[in-house]
């Protein structure tokens, strides 16, 4: 029977495709949250495998904080265009204006918390009943406990104590009006799985994932790209370094890593050798408290 064996990436791929098709079968108005980052790019590739030659039964949706890397935005538009699927973009800036929201202050003023407002408004605008996202359980301790089908109330809130038991490969996506489900098809993938899958399938990525020269600010041991969104002080140490991004989020809260890895093989080597976790190395926003992610999720964060 040895010819009937799937290796781990094939198993993960099949599981994720199955989840995508459950979304298509169970929901009337799903959406795929797509940022132009590597995890959501892998989601798009999995969706292609799940639904081609048919169209996706959902649009791609991006909640743009206005603090994104231009390379990621360009790639987002390029990929949506290349596969001929609908892309909906909603801007946090518009929500801030419409709702008179107060922006964070300080050196790394982030719109991370504010994007939840835009996401919930977008869900309401299009009456989305399911939002597919690229979160993985290996990223963070609160995510390790979240279901693949994660029910949110009408305020988008996650209640970790009231999660539905999720058994076998049977997903219960039934909801009341106003609620919606966040679906995480790559829950069981690790960072390394993602990179190995990108390599095997020769998936194209935005250029910032590969080593390049960039002006960065050294701040508490992390390298943050200088940009119009970050306030520089005189004491700040700014220099040009060869870096790449391990994750792609907002410019205000994503740090780069020093690297000379210019191709996927070199990146995989670096990730195998690294002593720091993905979020620990690159996310400034998780450092606020032990439960930063848990609190954001409870408040409707993706």
């Amino acid at each position: 029977m040895s010819q009937h064996r799937l290796d781990y990436l094939d198993q993960l791929e099949s599981e994720s495709i199955h989840i995508f098709r459950e979304v298509a079968g169970q929901f009337e108005r799903p959406a795929l949250l797509f940022s132009g980052g590597k995890d959501s790019i892998v989601l798009v590739h999995l969706a292609l495998k799940a639904f081609r030659p048919g169209k996706f039964p959902f649009p791609l949706v991006h909640i743009d904080t206005g603090h994104n890397f231009q390379e990621a935005l360009d790639f987002r538009d390029h990929l949506a265009n290349a596969i001929g699927e609908k892309l909906i973009v909603r801007n946090v800036v518009d929500t801030i204006k419409e709702k008179n929201l107060t922006e964070q202050k300080g050196k790394f003023a982030s719109r991370n918390a504010l994007q939840t407002y835009t996401l919930l408004d977008t869900i309401e605008e299009f009456k989305f009943d399911a939002c597919i996202g690229g979160a993985r359980r290996d990223e963070e301790k609160a995510r390790a406990k979240e279901r693949i089908f994660s029910v949110r109330d009408e305020f988008g809130q996650w209640d970790p104590k009231l999660q539905r038991p999720e058994l076998w490969n049977t997903y219960n996506g039934r909801i009341h009006k106003g609620e919606n489900v966040r679906v995480f098809p790559i829950s069981n993938w690790t960072e390394l799985d993602i990179w190995n899958y990108i390599k095997r399938n020769e998936i194209e990525l935005p250029s910032i994932y590969f080593a390049h020269n960039r002006e960065v600010l050294e701040w508490q041991g992390q390298l943050v790209a200088t940009s119009e969104f970050i306030k520089l002080d005189e004491a700040d140490k700014v220099s040009v370094k060869k870096v790449r991004y391990r994750t792609v989020g907002d410019m205000t809260c994503t740090a780069a890593v020093e690297s000379t890895a210019s191709n996927i093989d070199d990146i995989i080597k670096e990730i195998i050798a690294t002593k720091t976790s993905e979020r620990g190395e690159t996310r400034i926003d998780d450092r606020v408290s032990e439960a930063a992610m848990e609190d954001r999720k409870k408040n409707g964060y993706f």
Binding site: K141, P160, K161, T190, L192
Partner: peptide, 10 residues
Amino acid sequence: TIDVAYKYFS
């Protein structure tokens, strides 16, 4: 411990 948590290693 409240709920089932999933952990990964390889």
